[in-house]
Design a protein around this nucleic acid. Structure first.
Lengths: 127, 127
DNA sequence: ATGCGTGCAAACGATTTGCAGCCGG
DNA sequence: CCGGCTGCAAATCGTTTGCACGCAT
């Protein structure tokens, strides 16, 4: 029931070309620059669709903007992102996962979900 | 240089009466209900001021809204929040802290900061 | 006195949505 | 053919900001 349209293919491709997390607006700009003019609303809708299908990871930066990125690993993981250039390292944290679940259970909370992201300044962006 | 005004006192008091994380708009409503009519903009400005002074904790819910809460512990900690009623448990995670720093360092990232919040459904909110 | 703090309304900026037309299956 | 997909513009909505006035120090 999910149709493959020219726009979706373009968004997927633009996404693949990015190494860092990008906002919907940035991707829209990338598409425009490439000549694939896709409506901004469509970019938003498409990214949301991809996210729902777990095809892209999403997170919010300090300003509250939602950023998207197609990650290498499909399994659950976290990110270490450079505050400045957004260079990203995929991190897995089985230890943290276990900790989160244990904490949740010990307080009688169920359906535990966690938001764990690390922000820092990468080597290149250091003065 | 920080002046104590009627409005700030009111916001601080309203904040103290809350057990759960609240948005600026919710606090504004609480103030109005109490009779302390404070401008919404002032509520926003005041909360930001408090947050900058580390007098209140802030986090974003899944919708991206910023929520505020005056926590018990002053030291760095995290939260386990009920998705439904926002009941909150303060959590400290020295283990997680160490993990975060180690991960950051191992990838040559400095000034590591982390976003670690747990969301779940508390006992009362379970069907 | 002085200038930080406040209220109000306008401005913002990211994201969403209504609707008419398009096109993929 | 037909309903999902798209574009565009208008609408949302949380939050910020400009400005003139008031009050805490």
């Amino acid at each position: 029931m999910t149709r493959m349209t020219k726009q979706r293919a373009a968004v997927a491709e633009a996404l693949d070309q990015q190494d860092e997390f990008r906002s919907a607006q940035q991707l829209h700009e990338v598409l425009r620059a490439r000549g694939d003019s896709v409506g901004l609303a469509t970019v938003y809708r498409t990214l949301q669709t991809f996210a729902d299908a777990h095809e892209v990871d999403q997170l919010r930066n300090a300003d509250g903007e939602v950023l998207y990125r197609r990650c290498e690993r499909v399994e659950h993981h976290h990110h270490l992102v450079c505050r400045s250039c957004r260079r990203t390292v995929e991190i897995d944290g089985p230890t943290v996962e276990a900790w989160a679940d244990k904490v949740g259970a010990s307080h009688d909370f169920t359906d535990i979900d966690h938001t764990i992201e690390l922000w820092g300044t990468c080597k290149n962006c250091r003065a």
